[in-house]
């Protein structure tokens, strides 16, 4: 099958498919994929927000007060509310994908995919519980 053969990459009479710029709107699963990809921007925003928070805490009480006032402005509140939704969506879709990529063996046997998934959710719940304890109990 050399390039000069009949199945060469280009043939004048073959019809070439055209992918629309809006291909991601053609199926719900494509849209979910694009939203999952876009969710990384909101994850990045949370990282930046956390870094600003740390800088404000390090700057003393006035800087921290200023940060809290800025965080209470409507657009920051709205942005953070949208970010929470997207970060949760990011986590859930990431967890759904994880068992396909992670193949674990214990005692020579393959760990079932639902246990890999359950492990991720258990770790999520445990991490959230620790954060809650730090915020409320410590």
């Amino acid at each position: 099958m050399g390039d000069g053969h009949v199945d060469a990459a280009y043939h004048p009479r073959w019809l070439r498919p055209h992918v629309s710029t809006y291909w991601w709107l053609q199926k719900p699963s494509y849209l979910v994929f694009i939203l999952r990809e876009a969710s990384c921007m909101f994850v990045a925003w949370f990282v930046l927000y956390l870094l600003w928070l740390i800088r404000a805490v390090a700057g003393g009480a006035p800087a921290y007060r200023q940060f809290l006032d800025w965080s209470a402005t409507p657009w920051v509140l709205l942005l953070n509310a949208v970010t929470v939704v997207f970060v949760a969506f990011h986590a859930v879709t990431f967890f759904q994908a994880a068992p396909q990529a992670m193949v674990l063996h214990v005692g020579g046997r393959r760990v079932p995919t639902h246990l890999v998934l359950a492990g991720h959710y258990a770790a999520w719940v445990a991490a959230s519980a620790v954060v809650c304890w730090l915020l409320t109990g410590a």
């Binding site: 099958m1 053969h5 199945d7 060469a8 990459a9 043939h11 009479r13 073959w14 019809l15 070439r16 498919p17 992918v19």
Partner: peptide, 19 residues
């Protein structure tokens, strides 16, 4: 099948995949 050049009617070129 989508994403392949159409040779005729429902027949697509599969050369790219074979290579």
């Amino acid at each position: 099948l989508r994403n392949f050049p159409v040779i005729r009617d429902l027949v697509v070129d599969i050369g790219d995949f074979m290579r």
